[in-house]
Amino acid sequence: MGAITLQNVRKSFGDVEVIPGVDLEINEGEFVVFVGPSGCGKSTLLRLIAGLEDVTSGRILIDGQDVTDAGPAKRGLAMVFQSYALYPHMSVRKNIAFPLKMAKMPEAEQKARVDRAAKILNLDSYLDRRPGQLSGGQRQRVAIGRAIVREPAAFLFDEPLSNLDAALRVNMRVEISDLHNKLKTTMIYVTHDQVEAMTMADKIVVLRAGRIEQVGSPLDLYNSPANRFVGGFIGSPNMNFIEGEAARRMGAHSIGVRPEHWRMSTTEGAFPGTVGVAEHLGSDTLLHVELDSGENVIARAEGEFPVHHGDKIWLTPQDGRVYKFREDGLAA
């Protein structure tokens, strides 16, 4: 249960084409992350899969069955919304039990399932509260609880962590990954945060302007980005791009070097430059360097690297860690 196939799915709102055509294969049990900048159509794609929007053309299959024209309830998917979308007039217990009640499940079974979900999500002591009396993280868990009691074919998450503070976000990230390991159900997770994508995904789908730029495992995308956009989007801090003479010498329109792939030296190297801001984080050091050729790049050294504002520095890309891109942006 839970293999999803999109065949040439297109979506327009009036004259505006938001998804110009997407083909995608999601395998059973996979954790798939849709990632891309804000407004690129991630939510729209997710809502198409959920059945909350009608496709303009194309087909959507779940476990081989064409559900393109099926309503959201018929698709057997559960969704966790960015706003949580809890029912404010119901207690946590009733919120979680709501889909079961709608399915006319016997009371005893409902209770058993709600209790099980509450245990998994550490919600036992909040079951009688209203959503308004819970913190953001707890509401998030209730929303997830409401999704898991249904035992859906797949979970859909739309930026579920974006309303949480940074520390909680890290926790919930781990919890959701844990949940996936436990349930082994297909999950589709939408985020604009590449860190979430890298840490959680089995398979990342990078979207730009409604088009799929690349599909692959996190390390695939990291090690061999298909184009300059993916290269720049995946990895933190972002990849540095150098154009012009230096790139031409390597036979490319532009080259990309990740901050962690520079060798640094205070005496010699390929690219001389001047240290701007030096961020000493202890575990590593981030250097903002202005190259003599004019580009601003970021370099990252493990541990400490004793340079300061205004110091002269030479950067050299590590062997085999230079990404070459053609003029049209594709990897060369």
Binding site: L52, G71, P72, A73, F81, A85, P88, P99, M102, A103
Partner: peptide
Amino acid sequence: DGEQMEAAEMDGASALS
């Protein structure tokens, strides 16, 4: 809230429910 309605729709609630 429109998302609440959509959530209920996904939860299998009919228009009457």
